[in-house]
Simulated assay, not measured.
Amino acid sequence: MPQIQLTDTQAVVLSAACARDDGAVFPVTTKLKGGAVGNVCKSLLRLGLIEEIPASDLNTVWRHDEERGPITLRTTPLAQTTLGITEPEATTTPAEVATAPVLRRKGTKQDALIEMLRAPGGATIAEIAAALEWEAHTVRGAMAGPLKKKLGLEVTSEKVEGRGRVYALK
């Protein structure tokens, strides 16, 4: 099974959560400034080491979801395996670890970008920039960074006469 590399901060947050009976991430015991807690939690979510669950204690809310209400975070069995607390399950394959679920919130600009690229005929940079109220360089950066690198989506482009370069998701 491939080893998941954690930063020191990720390891501290994850270790503290695994030490709790319920595996709750909050309250975070380490002192982090600014949006560092959010960044650490997002990266742990992407790796599948923590998961979102309904929050019963309002002091531990991670975010609010329109459908599910207050959401908090707890560790997954993969977190304990990664930290060496438990042995890996025989049913967990390296492919399952590598394809940890990527969370995508509905109603965000990133979600709107993905929908525009999935639409029949795709979308041009100018169309996306106008719809999202972004600059052209922001659109290109969003396609190259979050879509390709983080979400693993394949963005294609082709020149269409009378329309210019059109981008779409495969």
Results as ranks from 00 to 15, higher is better:
1 M>A: 13
6 L>N: 00
6 L>D: 00
8 D>V: 04
10 Q>I: 01
13 V>Y: 00
18 C>T: 06
19 A>D: 14
20 R>D: 05
21 D>K: 14
22 D>P: 02
28 V>Q: 03
30 T>M: 11
31 K>E: 14
32 L>V: 02
32 L>F: 05
32 L>C: 01
36 A>K: 08
38 G>D: 09
38 G>Y: 05
39 N>C: 05
40 V>A: 04
44 L>R: 12
49 L>V: 12
49 L>N: 11
49 L>D: 13
50 I>C: 08
51 E>A: 13
53 I>C: 11
54 P>N: 07
55 A>M: 06
57 D>T: 10
65 D>E: 14
66 E>R: 14
67 E>Q: 09
71 I>H: 03
72 T>D: 00
73 L>G: 08
74 R>M: 08
76 T>H: 02
80 Q>T: 13
82 T>E: 03
84 G>H: 07
86 T>E: 15
87 E>V: 14
88 P>H: 11
89 E>G: 15
99 T>E: 15
105 R>W: 14
106 K>L: 12
110 Q>Y: 12
110 Q>N: 13
112 A>I: 10
114 I>P: 00
114 I>M: 08
115 E>F: 06
116 M>E: 04
121 G>D: 01
122 G>Q: 02
124 T>W: 04
124 T>Y: 03
126 A>S: 15
135 E>C: 08
135 E>W: 12
136 A>R: 15
141 G>E: 04
141 G>C: 06
142 A>E: 13
148 K>M: 10
149 K>T: 09
152 G>I: 05
155 V>L: 06
156 T>P: 00
156 T>V: 11
156 T>Y: 00
157 S>D: 02
160 V>S: 09
161 E>V: 11
162 G>F: 05
162 G>S: 08
163 R>T: 02
164 G>L: 04
166 V>C: 06
168 A>V: 00
170 K>T: 10
